[in-house]
Amino acid sequence: MTTPQLLRLAQGLWQKIQDEYRLLLGFVAAIGLAVTFGALAGEMLEGDFGAFDKNFLLALRHSDDLATPIGPHFIQTAMVDITAMGSETILTLVTLMALGFLLLRKRYRQTLLVAAAVGGGAILSGILKSLFSRARPDVVPRLAEVSSGSFPSGHAMNSAIIYLTVAVLIARSYEDPRTRSFIVGLAALATLTIGFSRLYLGVHWPTDVAAGWLVGLAWALLMGMIAITLQKRRQIEQPVDDTTESEEKL
């Protein structure tokens, strides 16, 4: 075997080791997030975050008028609009649009994976929501209608599960790191702002939102690792170089 062949073999082995390490790291991170959620839930049940939760919500309101949040009035209007992005109706529409996009690109197996991931996340969300019966915040007037339990935040959890999971799986359609980062970055921004809107409107404790984010991020990571594994085994469609694809069309 010649020296160039040996070098290529060594590079291939090193790349394989790196890929396996990234996969392992991703699964470990997902497990770590799940464990952190469990610890947070335990502390919440014991009431250890009571003072922090209360002070955080009070900091978002004027001390002389707790019904009025800090900042200009248009921010409150914006928060009401943003929080709607985490509603079941909007999340369902986003999911359908994502599935339609993948079908349009003829990525049928990836479409099934996204549908299964979103459906599984919805089931997980429902189970976790039913396990806890934490009361909604009462230290400040609520600026939005709510009815279910407070922990974990359904808006934060479901938006993280839907936006992040869909973004991670759709990003696997592309080879370009910038495209992947842009897609996932937009989803992360949407998830963060939706979670914050629940605090600004006074309908959730901070630990509710943090718990929702932890579950959603863990689920998205897990689904991303599964997608990578399936692509390596060529059981779903491979990523494409969108730059090359665009050049070929031109």
Rank of each mutant, 00 (worst) to 15 (best):
L66Y: 10
L66T: 00
L66M: 00
A67C: 03
A67M: 07
A67T: 07
T68G: 07
P69A: 06
P69H: 07
P69V: 10
P69W: 09
I70W: 15
G71I: 13
G71W: 14
G71R: 11
G71N: 13
P72W: 09
F74D: 07
F74W: 15
F74K: 09
I75W: 14
I75N: 07
I75G: 11
I75S: 08
I75H: 10
Q76H: 03
Q76W: 10
Q76M: 04
Q76S: 03
T77N: 01
A78L: 14
A78D: 15
M79H: 07
M79G: 09
V80K: 15
V80D: 06
V80T: 13
D81L: 14
D81R: 10
D81F: 08
T83H: 06
T83N: 05
A84S: 13
A84D: 15
A84G: 12
A84T: 12
A84I: 12
M85H: 02
G86H: 00
S87Y: 06
S87V: 13
S87G: 15
E88N: 14
E88K: 10
E88Y: 14
E88S: 15
E88R: 04
T89A: 15
T89L: 14
T89E: 13
I90P: 10
I90C: 08
L91W: 04
L91I: 01
L91R: 01
L91N: 06
L91Q: 12
T92P: 01
T92N: 00
L93G: 03
L93E: 12
V94Y: 12
V94K: 03
V94Q: 06
V94M: 11
M97K: 01
M97F: 12
M97Q: 03
L99S: 04
L99R: 02
L99C: 06
L99D: 04
G100W: 00
F101L: 14
F101H: 13
L102Q: 05
L103G: 05
L103M: 11
L104Q: 12
L104E: 08
L104A: 13
L104D: 09
L104S: 12
R105G: 07
R105K: 11
R105S: 08
K106V: 01
Y108K: 04
R109K: 14
R109I: 05
Q110D: 06
Q110M: 15
T111H: 06
T111P: 01
L112A: 15
A115D: 04
A115S: 02
A116C: 12
A116N: 09
A116V: 07
A116F: 14
A117D: 03
G119L: 08
G119T: 05
G120F: 07
G121T: 13
A122P: 05
A122H: 11
A122M: 12
I123V: 15
I123R: 02
L124K: 10
L124M: 12
S125P: 02
S125G: 10
S125M: 11
S125C: 05
G126M: 09
K129I: 03
K129W: 02
K129T: 10
S130V: 04
L131Y: 07
L131K: 07
L131Q: 12
L131T: 08
F132L: 01
F132W: 05
F132K: 00
S133M: 10
